[in-house]
Structures are given as structure tokens and as C-alpha cells.
Design a protein around this nucleic acid. Structure first.
Lengths: 223, 223, 223, 223
DNA sequence: TATGAATGAGTATTCATTCAT
DNA sequence: GATGAATGAATACTCATTCAT
């Protein structure tokens, strides 16, 4: 069993070192944001010298990209697993939508710190921006595909579009709300948060499953 | 030595100087973001010495708070005026909601640069965070009150809550969408943006004016 | 007398500070070469903070360019003065040439440390290279013009060219010799140095004032 | 354990490895100068680990000394061969001198990159400086001895000295000219370069073979 | 009161050298 | 011996803040 690994104790240690670096950077990013992350602090926390960090990454930006990639992969797995857990329950649309919204809400709340950091990073680094958008698109796809499995229950004529809009609106409202500060469980506004989740479920469901054709907006003078 | 009047022109000049400082900082914040704003550059643009700036504010953060306050006041006025313009048209709910959503969308797009900057600032400065939330609450109130003037057309049983939720959802979705990059007029995604506005209007209207009681969330096993 | 200056004691101090910076950098460059010059050391020696240095120059390279400019100006004045001192003596060519060579030799020896530093700098910085070449061309011109005042005594048919070649050869041989280490007065090789100066004078004089037409190089097989 | 022969292939491999190291360092020195040479790059190019390099040399400076030694040996062989080739032609002085100058010029141009690097190195490392001087003296000796074979054609009374001076002057002028930038074949100044070679030949020849006694320096007032 | 030159702590990055494997 | 990952001192440069004038 061990003989296969015996050859690379150095590689193992090296790998562990770098993992500590990423972990430290990930932690700092979540706890103190972009400005709280300095290479000196990462080096101190991870007990890895600055030079060693530079053996693995090309620059601070590069390190942050690695952090982003790892966190997003973990998040994607988590989200996929969550979506599949719901999928297996074969819920009817009227139960599926609120459930999905609730799970998305909890998912976002868990990762709000990193997501905010990545958005701030993205303002400076095009790679982070692109990767972030791709991950977002992937999440949107998972969400949409699950909804579309119940498309027979849709009333909205354009199934793809309706599902897509639901994600955009729900994700946006949740992310915005979290960004405004309801980030700690049990904190103030916990009631509002639960209420928002419920309302978003209702709203999304209405958008998908009710006949809104009679509500079509007025000619709209001011625009 | 000199009459009390003598002080006035000096105070006036001083006031004008400081206005130029705020203006320069406001411009820089919108154009280059938080990291593009240095006191040296603000001093250069406003033709006011760094020392003089420090006579009026305690720190760079303090200056940014002042900028935030002024910008938010201006935005609040603008938003109020917009809301009142719509109010005077006495639109029925089915026209009011999409109109209001459309106007809010345009309003947010105009100010997206500053709003993003304030959010980034808020991540570092609790005062900015608090003030930002208060302004947001004020905007929410204006929005809500206008909707409530048509409460007789609501079907949702809890009028206050329904109106509030509409704002939260619409604002969140719009802000998120803008923050992700649809910031330049006529750019890619302009179609999506218009579609989002329309959908949000529809969704909000449905939430307010349709009977969703039959859609009440499922037993909700997961979560 | 002092009233005129009284207005700018700050500017004076500031000027003095920067002079100390340049002086420190100039010293370090001469004594320890390019690698011995760090901004930290310049700051330490000049008692001027690093930040203050950066108020005056854009970068370390920029500082070195300023140093080069100042040193070259001083050298140019010195060289011009020397050339004119000789000019006034109205020497015949056979005295003029060895005198000029001797003075150029002493001039170069005085400044060999800086000249070497500037050459090394020029390998990295195109501006330094260009400025250095211009100063060299100026020196060459002064040298040439003085020689040409005795062109009636030339035998070489192409006066301009002959004078120019004399400078190139004399300067090159002297600079090379100095670069190889005869930099401290009274050191080893002092005899050789004096001999070289004498020989260069002789050689240059021969080139200008003897009929070399009979010596024209053979067809030259290898080349 | 193993026979004495067993060590040989290992030593051979080791020797080959180190040769690759020297070769890589030599290349880098010529192509990118002193600052472009890092041990990491030498290791990468030579496929020899940094640790192994440090088994053979004590420091980076030490490595560069080895490089210098090898390059100078090769140059010395090349120069000797060239001198001997000319020697066999048994040219009269008036052909020998320009030929020798021309060949020296081409020789220096071929090696200008390394020579410049060694000069820069010598500014930091006394050993490099000393070794460089010795090699230079050896080259001077070869040059001088060839000239002295035609001493019967000399007019200059001090044969040894005259030959030595010729080398000093010619070498200095050529090296200086090359150092100032005429390093690429066919580039600007190619004409000047050829002219310089011709003039140096003429000048050297005049110094050796003309009667300059009548030109003896003036009373030399300014010294 | 206004000025802006001066400060210097703090940042990312490089690279010769070491040493556990 | 050979390896190359790890080290960390050193460097150029930035910018919020201060204070003598």
C-alpha cells in the first residue's frame, strides 16, 4: 500500500505546503476581503516562505486565480449535488420551485464571502472575471435544467426563457440581499431573509405556472 | 480686525474649494473605482492642496463618506422626482408596475458606477455600509408608497409586505445584472437587459395582483 | 539682498535636499558602481526619505539619468574650459597635439569612475545611452575643432576625417587603458600611463602631419 | 564495491553535465549579459540541477570565473592560430601591420559580447579582473612578437616598446568603438568601422616605420 | 488658514544559496 | 553524488498622513 507512495515524500510535503498556502489565502479572502490578503500574511499563516509561494504561482493575482478556481470547483460540486438531491425527489413544479429557491439561498449564504471577494477581484482581473462568469453560467444551467424537467407544468410559453429568468431574478435578489449584510446566521433580518426566500419561490412559480398574458405591460410612455 | 462680513467671502471660497474636492473625488470614484482614487489625484484635479482637504475631513475614508453622502442625497432627490412624475400620471397598477420597474432600471444603470464603488467601500467601512443601507431603505420606501397608492388593486393580502418584496426583488435582480457587466449602453446583452426589465415588471405585477394562495409552498422537506 | 530670497526658504531647503540626493547618488555611483547604488542607501546618505526622492524623480532609472545629466554638464564645462585654455596658447600643431592628448588623458582619468558607470547604465537604459553618446560627440567636436585651427599644418588630405580619427583613437586607447585599472594616481603602471600619453601624442601627430600616402595598406588577402 | 573502472563513466557523465552548465552560462552571458544570467536559467538550459552546479562551484561568481577562464582559453587559441596564419605569410611590415589590425578587429568584434560581460564582471570581482588582464597581456604578447619579427623594418628606436604601444592603441580604439555600439554586422556605422580599421593600420605603421624623432613633444607647459 | 514637501511603513517580487531526501 | 523545493533578505515603488512655513 505504502510502497507506491514511498517514492514521493517530498512531493507530498510540497503538495501539503501549497495546500496550506491556498487554504490560508482562501481563509484570508473570506475573512478580510481582498485588501486583507497580503503575501506576507499568507506566508505567515501557511508557514510557507514567500519564495516557495512564488515557486507555485507567478504572481499574487495568479494565487488568487488558483484560490478562485478551487473554491468554484468545490462550489460547483456542492451545487450539482444539491440539485441532484432535489431532482431525485421528483417534485411537482409547485414544490420544486420553492425548494430550489430555498436551497439556492442557503448555498449562496454559505459562500457569500468568497463570492463577494471574487466579484471585487474580477473588477481588477479579467481572468477572474471570465472564470467567475463561466461558473455562474454553469450554476444557471443546472438550475434551469432542473426546472425544465417539469416544463409540462409550465404555462409560460417560452420554457427556456422563463426558466432562465427565474434564475436571474432569484439569484440576483438573494445575492443582493446577502451583499447588504444578512451574512451571519441568526442575525438581524433573519426573519426578512426567510420571508424573501418564500416570496421568491412564490414569484418564480407564478412566473412559470400562471397565465400572465393578460397582464402585458401598458404602452409605457416614459422609457 | 475686519467686519463680520469679511469672513463670508473667505468661507465662501473655502466652501467652493471643498465642493471642488468632493466633485473631483466623485468623478474619480465613478471613473476609476476605489483603487483609482488617490488623494494626490483629487488634490490635483480640484486645485486644492492635500493639507486643505485634511482641514475638512479626517481621513481618506472620511472624504469618501462625504462623497457617498452627497451622491446619495442627489440620487434620492432624483429618485423622488422620478417617482412623483409617475405618481402624477395616476396609472392603474398594471401599467404602474412595469413603468416603475423600467424607471428604476434606468436609474440604477445611470448610477451603477457609484453604487458599485459604495458597495466596495462598504466592505471596508461600517459607516459607509450603514449610510448605504439607510439610503436604500429610503428608496425602498418611495417605491413602496407609490405602489401602495394602488393597493385597492392588490390581490396579495399583505399590502405592505407585497410592495416591499417587489422592490427587494426588482432592485436586487437589476443591480446584480448591472454589476455583472451590462454597464455600457448599446453593448452586448442590451437585449437581455430589456427582456429582464419586462420580465421583472410582469413578475412583480403577478405577485401583487394575482391570487397566489393556491401556490403556497410545499411541505418543504429539504432545508 | 536677502529679501528676494526670503520668500522661498522651503524651496531652498527642498532644493538642498535634492542636491544632497543627487550628490549621494553621484558618490555611490562612482565608488561602488551601479550595483552599489540602492535607493535605501541614497536615502540613508542624503538624509532624505525615499518618498521625497520619488517626489523629484519618477524612478531609480530617472534618478540615474539626472545624475548622468549633471555630471556630464559639469564635465562638458570642464572640458570646454580646458580646450579653450589650450586654444589661447596658439600652439603649433606639433605642440598642440601632445598637449591636447595629455589634457584629455588627465580629464578622462579624473572621471573614469563615472564614465564607466554610465556605460554600464547605458547597457540597460536607452536614454542614458543616447545622452552619453551626445556628450561624447560634443567632446569629440571640441577636440576636433581645436585641431582644425591648425589645419594648415596638416599633411593628411582629409582634414575633418583626420582630426576625427585622432580623437577616436586617442580617446579609445586612453579609456580602454583606464578601464583596465590604472585608475588611482601613483599606482602601478603609472609609468606605462605616461608613456602611453606620449606615444598617443606622437601617433596622432604623425597621422596628421606626415605624408602617409606611401604606406597605403597592401591588397590585404585575409579580410 | 565496483571496480575502479566503474567510476569513470560516472565521472564522464559528471564532466559532461558540467560542460553543459558552462556552455549554457556562456551562451546566456553573451546573449543577455550579466543581469540576464540566473542560476535557475542556467540549470534549466543545461538540464543540470542547481544543486549539482553548486557541487562544482562555490557561488555564482565562481561559475562566472570558470566561464571566463574557458572562454579566454578558447579565444587565446583562436588568436594564436590567427597570428600564426599571418606569420606564415611572411608579410613585409607595411602589409603585416594593416593585416594584423584588420584581423584583430574582426576577432574583437566576434567576441565583443563576452568581453563586455567580463569587463562588467570585473568591476565586481577582482579575480575576474586579474584573469582578464592576464589574458589581455598574453594577447598583447602574441601581437607584439609577430610585429617584432619585422623589427628590422622598424624605424622607432625602441622596438619592444613601439610594438607594445601599437597593440595598446589599436586594441583600445577598436574595443572602445565596439563597446559604443557597432556590434551588429552591416548596421549603421559599418563604414566608420572599416575606416577606423584602415586608419589604425596606417597609424600603427607610421608609428613603427617612420622617423618621428623630429616630432618629439613640445616643452609641454600644461601638465 | 492654506500649502504641498516630506515621511516611511507597507507591498509585490527576485534570486543566490541551502539542505532534506 | 544528485536533486530542486524551500528559503528570506533585499529591492523598487506607492500613498495616506503630517507639519513646518
Amino acid at each position: 500500500l505504502q510502497s507506491t507512495h514511498a517514492r514521493s515524500p517530498k512531493q507530498l510535503r510540497s503538495r501539503e505546503s501549497f495546500d496550506r498556502v491556498i487554504e490560508a489565502a482562501t481563509d484570508l479572502l473570506a475573512k478580510h476581503g481582498i485588501d486583507g490578503l497580503t503575501l506576507a500574511e499568507v506566508s505567515r499563516r501557511s508557514k510557507v516562505s514567500i519564495g516557495s509561494i512564488y515557486c507555485r504561482v507567478e504572481s499574487k493575482n495568479d494565487l488568487l486565480r488558483v484560490v478562485q478556481a478551487r473554491v468554484l470547483v468545490r462550489m460547483e460540486h456542492e451545487f450539482s449535488a444539491m440539485v441532484n438531491r432535489i431532482r431525485r425527489r421528483r417534485l411537482p413544479l409547485r414544490e420544486l420551485v420553492p425548494t430550489l429557491v430555498r436551497e439556492l439561498a442557503q448555498f449562496l449564504r454559505r459562500h457569500v464571502a468568497h463570492l463577494n471577494a471574487f466579484i471585487a477581484l474580477g473588477a481588477r482581473d479579467a481572468v477572474v472575471r471570465t472564470v467567475g462568469r463561466k461558473a455562474h453560467a454553469q450554476t444557471a444551467l443546472d438550475f434551469r435544467l432542473l426546472l425544465l424537467e417539469r416544463h409540462s407544468e409550465f404555462v409560460h410559453p417560452d420554457h427556456e426563457h422563463a426558466a432562465s429568468t427565474c434564475f436571474t431574478v432569484v439569484y440576483g435578489a438573494l445575492a443582493r440581499y446577502l451583499g447588504l449584510g444578512v451574512t451571519t446566521e441568526g442575525g438581524a433580518g433573519e426573519g426578512d431573509w426567510k420571508q424573501l426566500i418564500e416570496d421568491l419561490g412564490l414569484m418564480a412559480l407564478a412566473f412559470l405556472a400562471l397565465d400572465l398574458s393578460g397582464m402585458a405591460g401598458a404602452p409605457g410612455a416614459s422609457g
